[in-house]
Design a protein around this nucleic acid. Sequence first.
DNA 1: AAAATAATGGTCAAGATTAGTCAGATGATG
DNA 2: CATCATCTGACTAATCTTGACCATTATTTT
Lengths: 155, 155
Amino acid sequence: MENRSISDIIEAYLKEIFGDDTQIEIRRSEIADHFNVVPSQINYVIKTRFTIQNGYLVQSKRGGGGYIRIERVNLLADVDVLNSLVQAIGDSIRERDAFAIIETLYNEKVISQREGDLMLVALSKQTLAVDDTNMENKLRARILVSFLNRLRYES
Amino acid sequence: MENRSISDIIEAYLKEIFGDDTQIEIRRSEIADHFNVVPSQINYVIKTRFTIQNGYLVQSKRGGGGYIRIERVNLLADVDVLNSLVQAIGDSIRERDAFAIIETLYNEKVISQREGDLMLVALSKQTLAVDDTNMENKLRARILVSFLNRLRYES
DNA sequence: AAAATAATGGTCAAGATTAGTCAGATGATG
DNA sequence: CATCATCTGACTAATCTTGACCATTATTTT
């Protein structure tokens, strides 16, 4: 309890707002005013304490009527498989290897066939083909990793 | 999902007018008067919230007896609608417009929430962001069209 | 008819209102 | 005293609101 920074206090305050709800909506400037800090500090708190690793999703809108919405999500249990897959993918992957991973996910019943089909078309050479194969493989890796990360939780 | 801006409120109002009908007809100045805003704000609401990406077609007529007609359509059910959607996508699309399409597909029960979530991450700025925004938008268009075609030939 | 007038909706750009980013300053800790 | 976390503020980006000016269609007048 000692040495609580203002960020810690803001974090606790936001978590208190949740109550039994699964999501809250705040106005950045209001929170900043409330604690007498600059608005960007709220971004800092969110970025360091309301991450997906911590089980939170964040959405926001700028302009008139803007807001920041923080949602608490349920993390799935079997993250070990996903971790090793992400590891294996690295930052570049060929079509055939990506397809193999999708098939594995399907066999492991992590995804349905339809989900797998949709993922396949996004990862296919036909969809991603750019002039540069290296670029294509990197892109494929990013999309695939995004898929896997999305499978980590349910909202 | 509170209605924070007057545009949000007008959007909700218009959607309420629909009821079970598939189309509504409004008089721009009437709506503007009703909410005490300038008439062009109605255009703004329509342009940002009743697009083909959102599953709406809009027609209007100027002059005496003029009107604005908003029609709710199913994106995949009708070949013409799908064509205008693909045309609207073209070879480049921004994240927000792509997201609107996915949400519409979900609302129409063409895809499940999980399928939609997976498609969203593949189309997200975070996943596709390269140094070049132009390239990013083109890539997004290709992936999205691949998704649509996949869904189309399935049904 | 043709022309003028009235009654609509459309476009666009400027200004207002939010939130986001990033680099540097400051503080805390081993 | 080195390093990492925190804090700040200038600059950027997205979204909404408004109003001046434009375009189209219907109606009335000549």
